[in-house]
């Protein structure tokens, strides 16, 4: 990414300082930029990210199945706070395409939780960042151990997913105890969400990436959430979300990287 810039900046401090640092055997984390340093600079520049508990991230300690790692992001504003959460970004730092999903949230949708499933290639920090309506940035992080052996971050049965490409299912759940005015729903869409293969000359394999790139959920005309996603979202993308229902049907529109459009409407509350 911008290693060259970092290197020249470091060089400015002088060789003596570097030699001293080496002698003191500073922890690697202090001396070398992490993947997150680069990702964060790319996404947010110099803006401060606050780890203040406004956003929390639930992730398993270990990715049991590298292809399907459940993640839940929750946000909670203090009572009386008039700001709203405008955007949530989920980053799997060590994945080839680290930004798993960027969610834009409807101003009146009151989304307080989003769960999805991601691919985790390697031992990785995972970051969730909330951007509030005042522009402030809030972060939560978890470390996820990779699964070993035969678990790979790939679709298990891509033919089955392709056979019903774009099929959607909406499930409704009891309102979460913590916010009884909320609704809880889950959208599932059949899609291999293929990362694409560009293998070496040995295997001669080339399969173009094919994944759901945008997905929008509205209630009536009002936005609930819009997801811009990449290959880190698991096959058969799945989003469970807590929100304030206005009683209108939920309409889903999705587009994939081959230009396929998928759309469906679901009555509110699963009625």
């Amino acid at each position: 990414m911008d290693f060259a810039q970092k290197s020249s900046a470091t060089a400015g401090r002088g060789l003596a300082a570097l030699a001293l640092a080496a002698l003191l055997t500073l922890p690697a984390a202090a001396a070398e930029p992490t993947a997150w340093d680069d990702i964060r600079a790319n996404l947010y520049g110099e803006a401060p990210l606050v780890e203040d508990g406004l956003i929390t991230l639930e992730a398993p300690y270990r990715a049991e199945d590298a292809a399907i790692v459940p993640m839940t992001i929750r946000t909670a504003l203090p009572d009386g706070d008039t700001r709203h959460v405008a955007k949530i970004t989920l980053v799997i730092d060590e994945n080839p395409s680290p930004v798993a999903a960027a969610f834009t949230l409807g101003e009146s949708a009151g989304v307080t939780a989003i769960s999805t499933r991601v691919r985790v290639n390697a031992y990785s920090d995972v970051h969730a960042v909330a951007e509030l309506s005042d522009g402030s940035l809030h972060v939560a992080a978890r470390f996820v151990k990779a699964s070993g052996g035969c678990a790979a971050p790939m679709a298990k049965d891509p033919d089955a997913a392709m056979a019903s490409l774009g099929k959607m299912k909406m499930r409704w759940f009891d309102a979460p105890e913590t916010s009884p005015t909320h609704a809880s729903a889950q959208l599932m869409i059949r899609h291999p969400n293929n990362s694409g293969l560009q293998m070496d000359q040995l295997t001669r394999f080339y399969i173009p990436a094919h994944f759901v790139s945008t997905l929008t959920i509205r209630q009536g005309d009002a936005l609930v959430l819009r997801m811009e996603g990449g290959i880190s979202i698991s096959e058969d993308p799945n989003f469970r979300f807590d929100f304030t229902s206005n009683g209108a049907p939920l309409t889903v529109e999705a587009q994939d990287t081959e230009g396929n459009l998928f759309g469906q409407s679901f009555p509110a509350g699963g009625a």
Binding site: A66, N121, C150, A152, P153, M154, P158, S195, L197, M199, T203, F205, I207
Partner: peptide
């Protein structure tokens, strides 16, 4: 072949 090619680097 497809399954292995897609996973080989990971394996």
């Amino acid at each position: 072949a497809r399954a292995l090619a897609g996973r080989a680097a990971h394996y």
